[in-house]
Amino acid sequence: MGKSERVKKIVCFIVLAAVCVVWMFPVLWAVLTSFKSEYEIQSSGFHLIPREWTIDNYMQLVGNDSTPVFQWFVNSLIIAVGHMLLVLVIVSLAAYGFTRLNFKFRSQLFGILLSTMMLPSVINLIPNFKIVDSLGWTNTFLAVIVPGAASVYNLFLVKQFMDGIPKELDESAFVDGANRFQIFWHIILPLSRPVLTVVALFSFTGAWNDFLWPSIVMTDVDKLPITPGLQLLQGQYMTYPGVGTAGAILALVPTFLLYLAAQKSFMESMSLNSGIK
């Protein structure tokens, strides 16, 4: 390694380390502050490490009727898992249909689906409220699980992947007498696991982090998911950083754990995204 190369590495290390410290500072502060007593926060100026550790802030969120954060947390889990499962089912079925079944207007239909990716979602907001309301779904989990599930983008990703699975595999199974569904279930699905993992991760985090839509269709405080719920929390605890940060940290825990568990898939999925040049 040349000398200038080494200098470059040292400079990059120092700059990146400094940026990362600044980058993580607010999160670190929030985690630590959620364990400080409100008295300590209000009385002793800005500091990082709690003088006395306490879980009072979290306890205040338990059984809190106007901002039931733990209830919201459970709601969000149900919604995010439900949405993820629904997406996996309908997208993998449809992707199989588009890669393996022959029917009239197949490629035209897929082309139309692709071109609708251009439609801006902002136009759908108001009509979707009316549709969900007419179905009697407002203030039910269905209102946040179902409407976003038919994602053409996910369909495209999975179809691309299934196109790459050799046709000989399912054709030989077909000759052996397996039906379409058996082939899908026993051959194509297991082989599609990498792309389905990516779709699962992103549909889970997408549903967990969704903000505007659930705040429109969920007016009942007990039914809210945590992400729009935190807006209420902010309104009530604007001057109580202890409770405010405790609520915020709770909302970050699941996506953070998911990231720790599946970091590689997250990274790969980002490059998959840009692969659709």
Binding site: P26, W29, P241, G247
Partner: peptide, 20 residues
């Protein structure tokens, strides 16, 4: 570390930053 905030819910991010 730099990627991490990308996965955070916007409302949690805004609560933390509003205090900051």
């Amino acid at each position: 570390l730099l990627y991490l905030p990308n996965l955070f819910a916007i409302s949690a991010v805004m609560i933390i930053w509003a205090f900051q």
